[in-house]
Amino acid sequence: MAQAIAINTPLTDEQVMKLKSGDSVLITGRIYTARDAAHKKLHDLIKQGEKLPLDLQGQIIYYAGPAPTKPGYVIGPAGPTTSGRCDPYTPDLLARGLKGMIGKGVRSKDVLDAMQKYKAVYFAATGGAAALISKNIKAVKIVAYEELGPEAIRELEVVDFPVIVANDAHGNDLYAEGMKKYRR
């Protein structure tokens, strides 16, 4: 594995600005799961000017809806889902201090622009490696929207959670650059 950079949550602007697309990163600390259904609820609260069920300042959202937890386990397999479905709601969350996102797949231009404006980073986790990834999750707590089942917002305590910086706060895009580099 490439030499990985260890980071702890919550993130500061300074930490975010140091990360470059292509970096391997190991995240330790608390992160929050939310998929598009939870994003829509957060977005509606923002539109109505109401308080969010979690403080986004410096936090990382992980686009994930885990499988059920088998007895004796902390959490079921929990890999990333397609990030693009959260794109319409993301700039508003970045404006409220969200510093990082973990998912899979390319982001919209609006999201990438907002990431530069508000200094945030987008990490790619390995889709379909859900059993492996769940080993880096040490504790789980539902924070909001329990009725959404796998789509509820969960606080995860993670240790050395492996990701790659796909889009950094400087406008670099590993999806575009990686494809260009290996195209024949």
Binding site: P77, T126, A129, A131, K135, I164
Partner: peptide, 26 residues
């Protein structure tokens, strides 16, 4: 990065098989 990912997929398949848990949450 590509090799790291392929290595993760092999490990993931081993864990899922040994522990009888889903390969992917979907």
């Amino acid at each position: 990065t590509g090799r790291d990912i392929l290595g993760q997929l092999i490990k993931n398949a081993e864990i899922a098989k040994n522990e009888q848990i889903p390969l992917c949450q979907d």
